[in-house]
Simulated assay, not measured.
Amino acid sequence: MAIRVMLVDDQALLRTGFRMVLNAQPDMEVVAEAGDGAEALEVLARSAVDVILMDVRMPRMDGVEATRRICGGRDRAARDQGPRVLILTTFDLDEYAFAALKAGAAGFMLKDVPPAELLAAIRAVHSGDSVVAPSTTRRLLDRFAPLLPRTEAPVHTELERLTDREHEVLLLIAQGLSNGEIARHLVLSEATVKTHVGRVLTKLNLRDRVQAVVLAYESGLVRAGGA
C-alpha cells in the first residue's frame, strides 16, 4: 500500500512542487493538502493519512500547534495510532523546529532538502524511525531551552521505573551518543545497548530517541550546555 501523505503549507506553489515529486513515486501518494494548521485539522478529520509534511510558519494556526494537537502530547499509544509529522523548516537550528519536536514531531527537514533525502525521510518516518539525530536535537535544546517561556515543570514518575543501567543509557542518549558510542562508553555490545534503549523507550512511553532527549531536558536530568 502506498504511503498516504498530507501536505500542509500556506504556499500553494511549494505544495505543487512537493506533490509532483511524491506522486511520481510508486510507493507514495499525496491524499490531502491544507494551507494552514487549522485547515489541516479539518481535512485530517475526514482523511486517512500516514505522514504529514508540515510547515511551521502559517496563518491562523502554525505548524507547532497543529503538531501538538495531532500527536496528542507524549502518550505513546495516541501517537502510534495517528499520522506521523515531519516538520519542514528554513533553518536547522530554529526555535520552531525545537518546539515541534517537543510537540511530538518525528523530525524535521530543511525546505530546500534534495528530493532523494525528502523521500527517504518520508519512508523512514512511515516505518517508525526518527529523521533527526539526537545530537542535533541536543544542539536545538542547548540553544533554545533557556530562552523559551517556562511552563510548570512536568513530573515524570516513569523515570523511577528505570534500572541504574537504563538511567545511564538515557543520560548518554541525551548527550547525543549513538548505540555504538554508548556501547564503547559502557563496555557493552551494541546488541545489549539496543535492548536497553528499547526498554527505556517502552518504560517512558516514548516513541523514539529524539523524544528521550527532550524528556531528559524537561525532567532536569540534562541542562542546556552540559550533562
Rank of each mutant, 00 (worst) to 15 (best):
M1A: 14
I3A: 07
I3Y: 05
T16P: 00
F18I: 10
R19Y: 05
N23Y: 03
N23K: 08
N23E: 12
D27S: 00
E29P: 09
A32E: 05
G35S: 14
V49E: 07
D50W: 05
L53E: 09
M54V: 04
V56W: 03
R60V: 14
G63K: 09
V64A: 09
R68S: 12
I70Q: 01
G73Y: 06
A78D: 07
A78Y: 01
D80T: 08
T89M: 13
T90L: 13
F91M: 15
L93H: 13
F98I: 04
F98W: 06
A100S: 15
A103N: 08
A103E: 02
F108H: 15
K111V: 10
D112E: 13
A116K: 00
E117W: 00
L118N: 03
L118T: 04
A120I: 00
A121W: 02
H126W: 09
V132I: 15
A133Q: 15
T137M: 15
T137Y: 11
L140F: 06
L141T: 04
L141P: 01
F144D: 05
A145P: 04
P146E: 05
L148W: 12
L148K: 14
P154E: 14
R165P: 01
R165A: 07
R165Y: 01
L170G: 02
L172T: 01
L172Q: 06
Q175I: 04
G176L: 11
S178L: 12
N179D: 14
L186M: 14
E190V: 15
T195W: 11
V200A: 07
L201I: 12
L201M: 14
T202L: 10
V210L: 06
V214M: 10
Y217G: 09
E218D: 13
G220A: 03
R223T: 00
A227W: 00
